[in-house]
């Protein structure tokens, strides 16, 4: 499998990268881990005349724990999301999503930014990021802008990212005490799979009465983009967590999704599994709070 010919740039700063993006427009493709781009270039699906390696962008490689937020550089390896103590301690659902992504070999190349920008409906990281209320930082020559991740995806492979922009970081508010989150995925194989469905949930309980103060539920592979399950969220908001409630939320989530039948799975099955998955991730989230 040969790669087509292209020019190669390795900018040393975000500014330099943005300048290249502006100059060459649609003909340039940013290269982070390459686990998507290289495959698509070999298949001839994309044919950039210039590849922009993000390898030297040091500021995009860090995970920073700030006062109220956690900032994850877009080029952070998925493997690093698993190994990093800050992620393990504060964003366990993201760690679970990272563990479910690809294989160890892929996780050693793939980046969090790449997983977001490729905008696959079944991607493993977006559901967890969505339930943590993640924001993405998009840079252009005009400077950075911040977009809520839930507003980022437009369709399969499509996002609000402009041709002259680069996703440089992901920002998340540090979850408060009394909160928990979980991620689950369902595939054919146990690993290295493209999920038939995946999902995450985040719960924050009111410390006084134990009711659900804040809730987010997100699902993947049941719509053209990773989605928030707003009907499920409504069913949960302000309620006291219980098995019955989680079952109801799972049922409500079926109305949130619009799955398709493709060669990987049927719409009816996906819909049915939405309930199971939502109930189970809620249980995981609750268990974490109780821990």
């Amino acid at each position: 499998m040969l790669l087509p010919k292209f020019e190669y740039d390795e900018p040393r700063s975000i500014e330099e990268a943005c300048e290249t993006l502006r100059t060459f427009g649609e003909t340039v493709k940013p290269l982070a881990g390459g686990t998507d781009l290289m495959v698509n270039m070999k298949k001839g699906v994309v044919r950039p005349s210039r590849v922009l390696s993000l390898k030297k962008l040091k500021t995009c490689n860090r995970i920073e724990k700030l006062d109220a937020t956690i900032r994850i550089g877009a080029c952070t390896l998925v493997a690093e999301l698993i190994q990093n103590q800050v992620i393990a301690d504060t964003l366990p659902a993201l760690q679970a999503g990272a563990k479910a992504l690809g294989s160890p070999l892929i996780r050693n190349l793939a980046t969090i930014g790449g997983n977001i920008c490729s905008a696959r409906p079944a991607a493993d990281l977006p559901p967890a990021l969505l339930v943590y209320g993640a924001r993405v930082v998009l840079h252009s020559q005009q400077g950075p802008r911040t977009v809520l991740l839930k507003d980022f995806f437009k369709g399969p492979g499509q996002t609000v990212l402009r041709g002259d922009e680069l996703l440089t970081a992901i920002e998340l508010d540090r979850p408060p005490a009394n909160s928990g989150a979980g991620y689950l995925n369902l595939g054919i194989r146990k690993v290295q799979d493209i999920d038939i469905i995946n999902g995450a949930a985040y719960l924050a309980l009111n410390p006084r009465d134990g009711t659900i103060e804040k809730v987010r539920v997100a699902l993947g592979a049941v719509a053209p983009t990773p989605i928030r399950a707003s009907l499920a969220e409504q069913a949960l908001q302000g309620q006291k967590p219980s098995q019955d409630l989680f079952v109801q939320a799972g049922q409500a989530a079926q109305q949130d999704c619009t799955p398709i039948t493709d060669f990987r799975g049927g719409a009816a099955y996906r819909k049915a599994m939405t309930s199971v998955l939502v109930r189970r991730v809620l249980e995981t989230a609750l268990k974490q709070i109780e821990k």
């Binding site: 499998m1 881990g33 390696s53 070999l105 290295q192």
Partner: peptide, 27 residues
Amino acid sequence: CEMGDCGSCTVILDGRNVNSCLILAIQ
């Protein structure tokens, strides 16, 4: 497979095992 699916091209790059079919030599 040359697509990062099989792992037969695995090498250790700066301490991490990776699919060398998915990496540009220049990287």
